[in-house]
Amino acid sequence: MIRALGSEFQKIFTTRMWWLLTLLLVLYVAFLAGGFGAFLGWASENPSAAAGASTTPLPTDGLAPLIYSFASSIGYVFPVLAGALAVTTEFRHKTLTPTFLAEPHRAVVLGAKFVSQLLFGAALGVVAFAAAVGAGAGALAGFGIDTALDSSDTWALIGRGVLAMALWGTIGVGLGSLVPNQVAAIVIVIAFTQFVEPILRLGASFNEVTANIGQFLPGAASDALVGASFYSVAAVGGAATMLEWWQGGLVLLGIAVVTTLIGGATTWRRDVS
């Protein structure tokens, strides 16, 4: 298992995909966290201009964690992609042949992918939060808003966010093993994370019953785990109920394990030709 794990890490870092994903993640998160931070900072100083007729000043408490959580609430698509690519690339380039020749026990290979993407996802999480905190805190500090970086709660949130990113990496492995076609897997990741789930979450939040179901959507579970999210603020009427953070974590882990097990028992066991 140690060998297979080492091999999987070498696979990650011997093509250009890893730094491409990392670079995009950093730029994306930094842009949104910094931009949103700057906008809120400006809005809190000019409430009348920002909110039209309303003269209530925006609350600036709790703003910082929300902005930092962009790292996972927006950036989670990157570890999913990394995980899905780690599996689908082997199908696409037919590298399953050398992989299975070197390690004929296929479950070991899939397990190594699961663990390596857990760790790579965590690394992406660290990078993403560094970008979000760097850009977000910079922007907030520029407007004199509390960056909350001296609060242990903030750091706990960041820790949970890194865990969420790690779990998303394993969900990617599960998805990739279920959908070995690389293009299909990428389309599913993008479509689900960017369109399907946000719409479902928003729709579910209109009603108590659906809201209870909606909280088990992976993105909602992830936000529950992290503890702050753009979506939970944006949800209509605040009807979006949230799981406990550890429940959110278990939901993510459950999705990852179940999809990987199903993929491992189906596509992963097929003839390699």
Partner: peptide
């Protein structure tokens, strides 16, 4: 030692392909 269809990841160097395999096989 088996050579089947000579397919490799196009973005990886020959040396790294062999390293990845050597690591996996100990």
């Amino acid at each position: 030692g088996a050579a089947l269809d000579a397919s490799f990841h196009p973005g990886r160097t020959a040396r790294n392909h062999l390293k990845v395999t050597a690591t996996a096989a100990g």
